[in-house]
Amino acid sequence: MDETLTPAMLEDLLERCPDALSGDVALPEDVLARYPDARAALDDLKRLVWELETTLKPVYPRPDFVQELKFALVQAPAPGETPGPGWFPRRSLQVAGAVAIGAGLWYIAIRRRNRGEPGASPLVT
């Protein structure tokens, strides 16, 4: 007896035929007999996969952004590192981490200010 293919059944079908989306895999005869619309449903999904492949393409960050952020990260005190001789005793990693986060927030605030976003940070006027 023909049955309408529900999403749950379609999922079961994909579990049963894991390669059905990646190539021209013949569906089992009992499946086709039971669900006449299974082939059409799989064709839909194959088409969707193709559209996802052509739409979700890699994007690349701006080179300036990549370089600026690297510079800012490398300048930030690393955990366990002193910013300068005699200024900052070797302290816990948490302190160094807090400094790094502070530097990050400062960097983001400066970027926002440069973009002209008003009130981006109370620290930057």
């Binding site: 960050p61 952020l69 800012a72 955990p79 790094a100 990050g104 927030l105 960097y107 983001i108 970027r111």
Partner: peptide
């Protein structure tokens, strides 16, 4: 995206230990 990526790497740096 740029703001969040900066935060990701600052957080990673702060917690890499």
């Amino acid at each position: 995206a740029e703001d969040l990526v900066a935060r990701v790497f600052y957080r990673a740096l702060a917690n890499i230990d």
